[in-house]
Design a protein around this nucleic acid. Sequence first.
DNA 1: CATGAATGAGCATTCATTCAT
DNA 2: GATGAATGAATGCTCATTCAT
Lengths: 214, 214, 214, 214
Amino acid sequence: MRGADRVRKLLIVRPTNSSNAQDGRSFIETARRGQIVEAAIETLAEVGYAKTSLTRIAARAGISQGLISYHFSSKQDLMEQVVTEVNADMERFVEARAGDADDHAGTVKALIEGFVRYCADRPAGILAVGQIENAEGWAAEARERSIADFEQLLRGGQEAGEFRSFPTRLMAVTLLAALEAVPGELRAKPETDPGVYAAELAMTFELAVHRTGR
Amino acid sequence: MRGADRVRKLLIVRPTNSSNAQDGRSFIETARRGQIVEAAIETLAEVGYAKTSLTRIAARAGISQGLISYHFSSKQDLMEQVVTEVNADMERFVEARAGDADDHAGTVKALIEGFVRYCADRPAGILAVGQIENAEGWAAEARERSIADFEQLLRGGQEAGEFRSFPTRLMAVTLLAALEAVPGELRAKPETDPGVYAAELAMTFELAVHRTGR
Amino acid sequence: MRGADRVRKLLIVRPTNSSNAQDGRSFIETARRGQIVEAAIETLAEVGYAKTSLTRIAARAGISQGLISYHFSSKQDLMEQVVTEVNADMERFVEARAGDADDHAGTVKALIEGFVRYCADRPAGILAVGQIENAEGWAAEARERSIADFEQLLRGGQEAGEFRSFPTRLMAVTLLAALEAVPGELRAKPETDPGVYAAELAMTFELAVHRTGR
Amino acid sequence: MRGADRVRKLLIVRPTNSSNAQDGRSFIETARRGQIVEAAIETLAEVGYAKTSLTRIAARAGISQGLISYHFSSKQDLMEQVVTEVNADMERFVEARAGDADDHAGTVKALIEGFVRYCADRPAGILAVGQIENAEGWAAEARERSIADFEQLLRGGQEAGEFRSFPTRLMAVTLLAALEAVPGELRAKPETDPGVYAAELAMTFELAVHRTGR
DNA sequence: CATGAATGAGCATTCATTCAT
DNA sequence: GATGAATGAATGCTCATTCAT
């Protein structure tokens, strides 16, 4: 299995059990929903969850408040949609740029680089999702899924003899945390070169996981 | 300078410019303020900032809503107090357990271990502060201060020839992120052995920063 | 310049700098705003500023509290609107009934009579504005504007040789005070004949200002 | 009856039916009550009724909030006391300076001059009473008493053939209004010479009431 | 006498949500 | 599909008042 496949497998979009995954939407409905989600993302990234009201989102989208309720059954429904769409978008992005690494170390590196580049390209989405997960208390579920994915990759590296022995869960948690810090850092220091950031992060985890001695 | 001193220096409690540091409080007032701060921490850790209202804090403390306003000039005042007290408590704790490492690597290790142990001991405070800093938009400032501290330590290690060459800011950001993930992980997996977590985290960063080759 | 013109000039509606003068309101919005303003006036006139809460105004208007906030950005915004509308209404009324006096004495008389008749017709508005200006601390500004207007008229009379010499400001202050006492008196003694009141007040100031000797 | 007697009669302090007229107060109690009343007057005159809280009065007096409630059964009780004391003080002042006019016109003049001088001397009290009467809706009662007094004086002048014929109540209302405007004007234009103001006001009403033709 | 801790009602305001049009 | 008028609950906060000390 080549790296691209590994990343693809890792980032596969999981079906949501909530009711907003139904299809059979008209073109206009899909467009409106997208517009609202976009406005929500921008608002969340800009002012934070606490100050993000439906009124504010509607104002940003240039539509009436009522229309949001027409398209989303509740504020929570909209927030779920934001999380789903951003995750799907990010996964598509990362997968597309995943290198053709043929070992696990390369896959980790590709993953990190893809994510950092995504954050540099479209920082609002990740910031928005961070706000939502934190505020709504959904961090736990989302985290578990990501952690499980990372663990699988790390365990694969250990089994292939590439990585040293370590508790995969803790390393996965740490890797996830390091990635989650990226958009905030890029916002705090916009002059940061994403390439350097990605390379440094990749190096850090390469050193942390690779098999020592030999 | 020994490790304990380095940690002490790192964790020095910064003077607050706000007015709630005044002394001259009666015993009963101090006790009530402490009780309210405690109730606020528990509430924040449990339900998150968005659902933490003064009413809820009062209910948890078993007092009237008005009493909070009697002791704190505003909700923000209370939140500031929570941050101040938790930080002071954490720094006291970490400093007290700081090892006697006589090199920079040892200091980093002591810092990580102290922090993980603190999170294991009193997880609510750190979670509460995280909620506040995120919601109130104070995260940026708090981050910068911590990052500056960490950078100083890392740069010291580089200058002493202990650490490899890397951009200290990015490593500091990553280290901070890894630490901030600790209370969430301990909450998600309460069975985690803090000692193992601390050791693993220390090892991870030891490998990441130490001078390679030789 | 005839008396009607003098009064018209005197009572010209001053443009408000606040933003609530915008047009482009729907019919229903205009109606609701009017209803709320009306309820506010009645409440203020009846129970005074201190006991006039948005809850009370809403109750009198038979609507929810939230609806007031929907139509007015703040309590102060509503109060400004009350002042603006009552003043405009009063000025329209007084101007419409302004006599065709062709001297300054006649103009003063027309002004007094118009105002007394307005107070007899719609006493609540003037009482409400009095409450607001006093409580909000706007009394000073409003007073100065009225005094300046009155002074101008009185000075005109002096220059025309109709009025005796007196400090115009003090006479203006006294005249204003006498007028402001009208709604209170009409409320205290509803049986008072407004015509008699107006005539008596006009006579009082006629005697006070007119040129003696000859 | 000479003018001084007329004024004395006019300004006689009426017994209050409320319960705060009881005697048998200790020295310290009397002093405290006076101190609180004084602080209330200053606060009312400075910030207006709406912003005058017991907390604020206590702060100004340099005592605890509770002490006000200890000495006055309610906020309303304190406000009543302010009105009573200011009125008594004012009446004492006016009476003391009442001239020895031997006709009614002179008495009116003495009254006006005394009041203007009092407002110039101690403006806070009258402003405070104005705030209270307006806000509490007590204006009515207080007004009626003053009006009755003035009417009696004016009727006396008419019966003595000094004054022209006019409805005494309306002239009394107007005179009262003119006097009530004095403290506000002195505050708005502190450079005003009280002597000039008094003389002008006296002249105005002299012209308004005196018997014309002869 | 005096304090200040404590309460509970009331305040203006915000906001997610509903619904007639 | 879309609007915006309307609601009602919740929020942070102020304040007169009570009461144990």
